[in-house]
């Protein structure tokens, strides 16, 4: 037998978006500001996932300005509206949609003034990338001018938005209920190489396919998938918080082992866009679901490579070798 054995495995997964088995809600305030810029206030934002940028993109798109012209305020329970927590893969879905609604609200104010100023029907007004115009006419100006005109007419173009996701509680006896209004689906494939001398598993490739509803920022989504896969890989192969009589034996990063730059696969992602019909943006989410299929895909790939079924995570080199030894013993016994 060759020292190195390769194999592939796959796994699929599903996930619900936003808070579970309850109504979820998020609020935002928006102001189209001087210079054709904008302020967005909402109660919760960035934990690294890129939501600030997503919100800036959403606000820019809805307001007709550019993302870099959007300022997102601090998350402050005394200065911004409630948007609940940063979790449950709810950021793009809940806060993104609430910002979209707030922007539409602000635009209604602005558009009404500009339509009146131009003497055109409000439904003809469109704006993008710092410019506003009336469709089918030669009326056009910058957003900076538009905000100035709106304010000179005595109106500050502000808006607010509240977005709701309708989940219902579960029946306490049989669990019946509609916990989320939107689900996502995904599948991942892993290719591994197992070193039969050391029991080490290297993941060489991962293919991730996820339904995200509608992609707001492709690189951002990829970043979420890549990060989730490496966390899933850590759980599949090395991470293990251990205690002995309640005292941890993995108290620091020399004992609690995390994947490094040398432990990660090439990650290939592809997105499926099945838009959510129940929300203004049509986007769903990716943060958590991308982690779910990783470990089983890797474990299934290890089985493909060496015929050892790991049922208890993580698949440490020691467990892999013990599995190989057990398999050998079983095949000798069978002879």
């Amino acid at each position: 037998m060759s020292r190195y054995a390769r194999g592939r495995g796959m796994a699929a997964a599903w996930y619900g978006i936003a808070k579970t088995a309850t109504i979820d809600r998020a609020g935002s305030w928006v102001e189209l500001d001087d210079g054709g810029t904008a302020k967005v206030l909402t109660g919760v934002t960035e934990i690294g996932e890129g939501i600030l940028t997503v919100l800036a993109q959403v606000a820019a798109e809805e307001l007709g300005i550019r993302p870099e012209q959007v300022t997102i305020g601090d998350n402050d329970t005394s200065r911004s509206p409630e948007a609940a927590h940063a979790g449950a893969t709810r950021q793009t879905y809940m806060i993104g949609n609430s910002v979209a609604l707030a922007c539409r609200n602000a635009r209604e104010r602005l558009d009404a003034e500009i339509a009146d100023h131009w003497g055109v029907d409000i439904n003809l007004i469109e704006a993008f990338n710092g410019e506003i115009w009336a469709r089918g006419t030669n009326k056009r100006m910058t957003m900076e001018e538009a905000v100035h005109i709106c304010k000179s007419r005595g109106v500050v173009p502000v808006g607010s938005g509240s977005f709701t996701a309708h989940g219902t509680g579960l029946d306490p006896v049989n669990g019946t209920g509609a916990p989320w209004q939107v689900y996502v689906f995904g599948a991942q494939v892993a290719e591994v190489e197992v070193d039969t001398v050391t029991g080490e598993v290297q993941v060489l490739g991962m293919w991730a396919v996820h339904d995200v509803g509608r992609t707001i920022n492709p690189r951002g989504v990829e970043g979420q998938i890549e990060g989730a896969i490496v966390q899933g890989l850590g759980q599949a192969l090395m991470e293990d918080y251990q205690t002995e009589k309640g005292h941890t034996t993995t108290p620091g990063f020399s004992k609690y082992i995390l994947p490094t730059a040398l432990d990660i696969p090439q990650i290939n992602s592809r997105l499926v866009e099945d838009r959510d019909p129940k929300s203004p943006l049509g986007a769903k989410g990716i943060g958590e679901p991308a982690l779910v299929p990783t470990a089983p895909a890797i474990i299934n790939a290890i089985y493909d490579a060496i015929g050892v079924r790991i049922t208890s995570l993580p698949a440490t080199p020691e467990k892999v070798l013990a599995g190989l030894a057990a398999k050998k013993a079983a095949s000798i016994a069978a002879e």
Binding site: A12, V189, R270
Partner: peptide
């Protein structure tokens, strides 16, 4: 009311 599972599996199988 919506479900993309079939599409996800199809794309994944081909993609890898």
């Amino acid at each position: 009311e919506t479900c993309s599972m079939e599409e996800v599996l199809r794309v994944a199988e081909e993609f890898c």
